[in-house]
């Protein structure tokens, strides 16, 4: 069963073609790292696969849904329930506490009361229970990012999209966050798509797709 099936995806910015007819398959429950040098098209592929950005041609099926053909309302709903996002920057709402930030996706569906227990569990699980009532400005960088990861998990998504999630973290916090992704993948069988330029973290993944100049340079399996 495929989590993502991309065929001949092309994305250009003016005269510059960022993705040159990319085709790839990602199975459900797979941990995939997309790597490559700066400007190789990693982030563009990430946004194209997640439906955050439109593509010029080709198609992307996410859990069997043509993500670029979904009506806007359905796309929002799909992102809310099936996908979780973690970015390099935490994007926490500065006026909300750690717990409120985690529950933000659930609030959209009016499920915040039901999800409260799970949010508290995530806080505890990620060793940030003390951040429950703290504002982002009162947290460390690692804590903020862990809150952001918890937020991406609150709706039990089937796919986690993580774009350089350790980019702003020190090595200790980076390792903590990466271990969390690995655990989520192993424990919940959640598909994780990780954008990174760090070979060490890429090796944690089941598969590494390396991009170069908008094309897939290599597709290596690290499965032991």
């Amino acid at each position: 069963m495929l989590a993502i099936e991309a065929s001949n995806v092309v994305k250009s910015f003016g005269d510059f073609t960022a993705l040159k007819s990319i085709s790839l398959n990602i199975r459900k429950g797979e941990f995939v790292a997309i790597t490559g040098k700066s400007g190789s098209g990693k982030s563009t592929l990430f946004y194209s696969l997640s439906g955050l950005d439109v593509i010029d041609s080709g198609h992307v099926l996410v859990l069997g849904n043509n993500i670029h053909n979904l009506p806007q309302e359905d796309l929002h709903d799909f992102r809310n329930t099936k996908m979780g996002f973690v970015f390099q920057f935490h994007y926490l709402v500065s006026e909300l506490t750690g717990l409120e930030n985690i529950l933000l996706p659930a609030k959209k569906k009016n499920l915040h009361k039901e999800k409260r227990e799970y949010a508290l569990y995530l806080l505890d699980y990620f060793a940030i229970a003390h951040c429950k009532d703290k504002l982002p400005s009162q947290m460390s960088g690692g804590e903020r990012q862990r809150v952001a990861v918890a937020r991406s998990l609150i709706m039990n998504p089937e796919i986690i999209f993580a774009d350089e999630p350790t980019g702003n973290l020190d090595s200790i916090n980076s390792e903590i966050v990466m271990n969390i992704f690995r655990e989520i993948n192993l424990k919940n069988k959640t598909t994780v798509i990780l954008i990174t330029h760090d070979d060490e973290y890429a090796h944690l993944a089941d598969k590494e797709i390396r991009l170069k100049d908008g094309e897939i340079e290599s597709d290596i399996s690290h499965k032991k």
Partner: peptide, 16 residues
């Protein structure tokens, strides 16, 4: 803007 971006990416609509 950043918070609007994350709200939109986690399922909040333009109308929200």
């Amino acid at each position: 803007q950043r918070e609007i971006a994350i709200l939109r990416s986690i399922g909040y609509t333009s109308a929200d």
